[in-house]
Nucleic acid binder design. Sequence first.
DNA 1: CAACTGTATTAGTTCATTTAATACAGTTGT
DNA 2: ACAACTGTATTAAATGAACTAATACAGTTG
Lengths: 125, 125
Amino acid sequence: MIILDYRDRRPIYEQIVERFEELMATGALEEGSQLPSVRSLAMELSINPNTIQRAYVELERQGYIYSVKGKGSFVADSGRIRDSRRQEVCRHQEETAREALALGMDREELEGIIGRIYSEGGDER
Amino acid sequence: MIILDYRDRRPIYEQIVERFEELMATGALEEGSQLPSVRSLAMELSINPNTIQRAYVELERQGYIYSVKGKGSFVADSGRIRDSRRQEVCRHQEETAREALALGMDREELEGIIGRIYSEGGDER
DNA sequence: CAACTGTATTAGTTCATTTAATACAGTTGT
DNA sequence: ACAACTGTATTAAATGAACTAATACAGTTG
């Protein structure tokens, strides 16, 4: 479910936050479904429970999950999560286009890549 | 020429590297032109010379500049720099498209953003 | 020779991240 | 009631990256 990359310079708790965001945004984790407990996930990843909790606190701060003492942590409104992710993708697209423009690249080059990715996902496998 | 963002969590030396990459890739710094000296840029940015040198070492390691003891640091092959940047933009475009696809976004949405950016840069101002 | 350049080294500071060890509080099933 | 789970909080320590500081050496230039 979660794989840590220790070569990644970003902190572990941030990798965990991002991974859960992915799982929720793509629907792999449905609204209301329960996340692994702080302790069990810490065991599974061989890291300290505090680090997991930090990730969960951040996810809750952003409204992606809610936690209930004694019960567990659960996925909140997944529609909102998906919208938030989509906005971020738009921001990334803007940045990419701006940089391509600055480098004198043709827009067709970017659009070609998009076409390739979308056709890949459409029928391969 | 260079502006530091202390809110940015990335290290200063990395911001400097990236900024010079930009200046070289867009042609603002031409091939063979001289970079500010380690000490003068450190003064200008009110930081330690060691931090500038670290950025320059990294730029040299990547082949973007070359340094001559007693003379200074100079922009290397700017064509290679631009190519390298373009490849990176392509990688970013791939990532963005993949994520958009995973989120169920239409490719027209991405292409619309590209069109907007490219028409902005074409005639505004 | 003075005033610049890059380069190197050593030591210390600062800060975010992570671990560790507990403890408290609420839920659930037996 | 009790054991075994949940989340939450706290305090202390270890670790490592980034940055600063001070100094020195080496090469270039006018």
